Amino acid sequence: MDYTNNYTTTSHGAQAGLSTGGGFLPGSQTADSPSTTNKRSYGKDTLRPVTLRQLIDAHHPHPDAEYFLIDGSEATQVTFVGQVRNISTQTTNVTYKLDDGTGTMEVKVWIDAEAFGQNEGEEEGGGGKASKVVVEQGYARVWGRLKAFNNKRHVGANIIRPIRDYNEIQYHLLEATAVHLHFARGPVELLEQAKGGAGGGGGAHSNGGGAGGAAPAPGQLPPGTSLSARKVYQAIRNTPQSNEGLHVQQIATAGGLEMTEVLRGGEELTNLGVIFTTVDEHTWALLEIEG
Rank of each mutant, 00 (worst) to 15 (best):
F116G: 08
Y139D: 09
V50G: 07
I56L: 10
D112N: 15
V94Y: 00
R145I: 12
V81K: 12
W110A: 01
H154S: 13
T51Q: 08
M105R: 10
A148V: 13
A65C: 10
L98D: 09
N151M: 12
A130R: 01
A115F: 04
V78S: 08
P63V: 09
L55V: 06
N150G: 02
Q77F: 12
V94D: 09
N119C: 08
E124N: 07
L146Y: 03
K129S: 11
A140S: 06
A58E: 05
K108S: 07
S73V: 15
T76E: 14
P61F: 13
Y96H: 06
E66A: 13
K152C: 03
G101H: 06
Q77C: 12
T89R: 12
S88F: 06
V155S: 04
H62Y: 15
E120H: 07
A148C: 07
S131Q: 14
R141V: 06
V155P: 08
P63N: 06
A75Y: 03
Y67P: 07
N151L: 13
R53Y: 03
Q83I: 00
K152R: 14
G72Y: 05
V78H: 10
G72R: 10
K147V: 09
F116I: 00
A75L: 03
G101I: 11
G127W: 01
I56Y: 08
E122L: 11
F80T: 01
R153D: 05
V155T: 11
V135T: 15
G103W: 01
A75V: 14
Y139C: 08
R145T: 11
H59D: 14
T76L: 06
G156N: 12
G125V: 01
H60S: 14
S73Y: 11
G72H: 10
Y67A: 07
I56R: 13
K108M: 04
V107A: 03
G156A: 13
Y139T: 04
H62W: 12
F68L: 05
G121N: 10
T89I: 12
G138R: 02
I111S: 04
